[in-house]
Amino acid sequence: MTPRRLGPTDPALPQVLPLIRLAFAELDGVIDPPSSLRRMTGDDVTRLAAEGEVWALGDPLAAVVILTAREDALYAGRLSVHPDHRRRGHARTLLRLAETRARAWGKPRVILGCRVELAGNHALFRSEGFTETHRETHEGYPRPTSVWFEKRVTPMSDTTPEAGPEAGPETPDHDDARHASKMAKKKAARDKIMATKTEEKGLVIVHTGKGKGKSSAAFGMIFRCIAHDMHCAVVQFIKGAMHTGERDLIQAHFADLCEFHTMGEGFTWETQDRARDVAAATKAWDKAKELIRDPANRMVLLDEINIALRYDYIPLDEVLAFLRDEKPPTTHVVLTGRNAHERLIEQADLVTEMELVKHPFRSGVKAQAGVEF
């Protein structure tokens, strides 16, 4: 079989996600934590086909790989072979294709990740010349959960990928006509996606992760609501007496549009009293339900509720059932805090994980007005 690239409008592109899901289904119960594949959508595949490269073998599809450019590497992801087409060298074919594409893009290496449990895959990668570079640990796990591999390649002397459908979308264009043609293809793919987006609904939005910005981004949406003259509300589950810029501004100038309730007594290490924490979280959840039930509120922010859920201050089952069964259909609910529960992530419509890359606190810099509060 000869590899072929699937563009965003290729008739075979809708086969990609079902094939990947079928190939990954046998990993259920084998890898821990479960694959993030469940959150991948057909729109994601279309976007990756426009912004990166989706390559496949066979018709109907027998194997696929998705290539995306990193700063100094080409990432080969979602390498999948249909169970009926295993042991025919398809994975090796696509791995070697990734090397060719890395050279065309001017990237010095191909990288890929694999779960620690999949020793057979590790052996395949090593047999193709890949070497292990490091291991990573998913949040909340005491052991490494992923293994990363790389293979060095020699880039072409001309690092601009060849013209035609295989050209990498992020390579600099030295020809105005070529650039215009490429942008037109991107626009056509984007327009096709946007034409299918006709529904409006109230969203369940989760901001989680170790990085800074979960509450900050949520308050950005609250201020957008205020700017659109939409009623909204905030319930803070953990933060206590500390004054914050957002609370002071809202209460001083926008109290008619945004109710603000600080219900917590501080972070858990400050109170050191579980009974008080549970009582405060329960009171905050009762207020949150009242505000969410009010159809006048178009958005309700439950700030740091994920922490209360993590420590079982309020029942997760009750929160999930309420959001599913009682939230008005046009009301947005935003839940922030690190360590969001997997079941909440599964039920949510929009999930963003803030990744910690660098933080001044580790260098001895304290929280500062305008940045943290």
Score class of each variant (00 low, 15 high):
9 T>G: 12
16 V>G: 04
21 R>Q: 15
23 A>I: 06
31 I>A: 06
33 P>S: 13
41 T>A: 03
45 V>C: 03
46 T>P: 00
50 A>P: 05
59 D>V: 07
64 V>Q: 03
76 A>H: 01
78 R>N: 12
79 L>D: 05
80 S>L: 09
81 V>H: 01
91 A>E: 11
98 A>G: 06
100 T>V: 13
118 L>H: 10
120 G>W: 11
122 H>A: 13
123 A>M: 05
124 L>D: 05
126 R>I: 11
136 E>N: 07
137 T>E: 11
137 T>A: 13
153 V>Q: 01
154 T>W: 03
156 M>E: 12
168 G>K: 07
176 D>M: 10
181 S>Q: 15
184 A>G: 04
186 K>P: 04
191 D>L: 06
192 K>C: 05
194 M>R: 02
201 K>Q: 10
207 H>F: 10
208 T>Y: 12
208 T>M: 13
216 S>Y: 00
217 A>D: 06
235 V>D: 01
236 Q>T: 05
237 F>T: 09
244 T>P: 10
246 E>P: 08
250 I>Y: 06
253 H>Q: 08
254 F>W: 13
261 H>D: 08
268 T>Y: 11
272 Q>M: 13
277 D>C: 04
283 K>C: 08
288 A>E: 02
293 R>Q: 14
296 A>D: 14
298 R>C: 01
303 D>G: 04
306 N>L: 07
320 L>M: 09
323 L>E: 09
336 T>C: 10
345 I>K: 11
347 Q>R: 09
354 M>Y: 10
369 A>G: 05
